[in-house]
Simulated assay, not measured.
Amino acid sequence: MARAGLTQQIVTTHALDVLDAAGPAGLTLKAVAQRAGVAAPSLYKHVRSLEDLRVLMAVRVLTEAAERIGAAVMGLAGDEALRTFLREFRAYAGQYPHRHTLLESPPPAAGEHGPALEAASAHLVEIAFATVRGYGLTGDDLVHAVRALRAVVVGFVGLEHSAGYLLPTDLDASFAFLTDLLAAGLNRHAHPPGTQDRA
Rank of each mutant, 00 (worst) to 15 (best):
H113L: 10
S121D: 13
F156G: 02
V152T: 11
R198W: 04
A120E: 02
D180Q: 08
G114A: 15
A163D: 14
S162T: 12
L178C: 04
A110C: 00
G164M: 04
G185E: 06
E126F: 10
T169P: 01
A119V: 15
H161Q: 08
P192V: 15
D140H: 10
G136I: 11
P193V: 15
A128E: 12
V154G: 00
F177R: 04
E160I: 07
G134C: 13
G139H: 07
G139W: 03
F177T: 15
S162L: 05
G139K: 06
V143S: 13
E112D: 12
A151W: 02
A190Q: 09
L167F: 04
L178T: 14
L178D: 09
L186N: 01
L117G: 03
G134N: 09
T179G: 11
E160N: 04
R188I: 15
L181A: 03
T138P: 02
L166F: 00
H161Y: 03
V157T: 13
L159A: 07
D140E: 15
G164N: 05
E112A: 15
D170A: 10
L124D: 12
L159W: 02
A116G: 00
L117P: 02
N187W: 07
V154N: 03
D197F: 12
H123K: 13
R133S: 10
H189P: 00
L178R: 02
A128Q: 09
H189M: 09
A184D: 14
G139Q: 10
F156R: 06
D170Y: 04
V143C: 05
A128T: 08
H161G: 04
Q196M: 13
V153A: 01
Q196N: 09
F177K: 08
L178S: 07
G185S: 15
L142I: 12
R188P: 01
L137D: 09
T179N: 08
P192C: 14
A151Q: 14
P168Q: 14
H189F: 10
S121H: 12
R150W: 07
A110M: 03
H189V: 14
D170N: 11
R188H: 12
V153S: 02
L167V: 05
V143A: 14
G158H: 06
P115S: 10
F156D: 05
H123T: 13
A116W: 06
R198A: 11
R147V: 09
V153G: 00
V132H: 03
V125C: 02
V157N: 02
G155Q: 12
Q196D: 08
P115H: 07
G111V: 15
R198G: 07
S174K: 08
F175T: 02
D140Q: 13
V152R: 00
F177H: 06
A173S: 14
T179D: 13
V125H: 09
P193Q: 12
V157Y: 01
D141G: 10
T179A: 12
G136H: 05
D140L: 10
G185Y: 00
L149R: 06
H144W: 05
L142F: 04
V154Q: 04
G114L: 13
